[in-house]
């Protein structure tokens, strides 16, 4: 299946803004994070098709995954 991965803020540093990925059926968000070298606890919020989900969430063909790091300063 094919999904779209969007990275935000500091996650773009040394990576990309948006890319398409080919994944085997049954993949979850963790399978996206691993090759990007992003640990699950570095993700503040993950949206799949605009809904916030956890890292175990299973993906479907055509999904758009948006990943955000924690931005906490004041």
């Amino acid at each position: 299946m094919r999904v779209t991965v969007k990275l935000f803020a500091t996650f773009r540093d040394g990576r990309f803004k948006v890319e398409e990925r080919e994944l085997p059926q049954g993949s979850n968000v963790l399978n996206i994070l691993e090759p990007l070298n992003i640990k699950p606890d570095e993700v503040a919020i993950c949206l799949v098709n605009g809904r916030d989900v956890n890292a175990q969430h299973f993906l479907n063909d055509g999904d758009t995954i948006a990943l955000f790091p924690p931005v906490g300063g004041g």
């Binding site: 803020a9 500091t10 503040a44 919020i45 916030d52 790091p69 924690p70 931005v71 906490g72």
Partner: peptide
């Protein structure tokens, strides 16, 4: 809670 409920420190500590 949904945006900031995970993790101890944000990326501002580095950036």
């Amino acid at each position: 809670l949904r945006l900031y409920g995970h993790g101890e420190r944000g990326v501002e500590s580095k950036w």
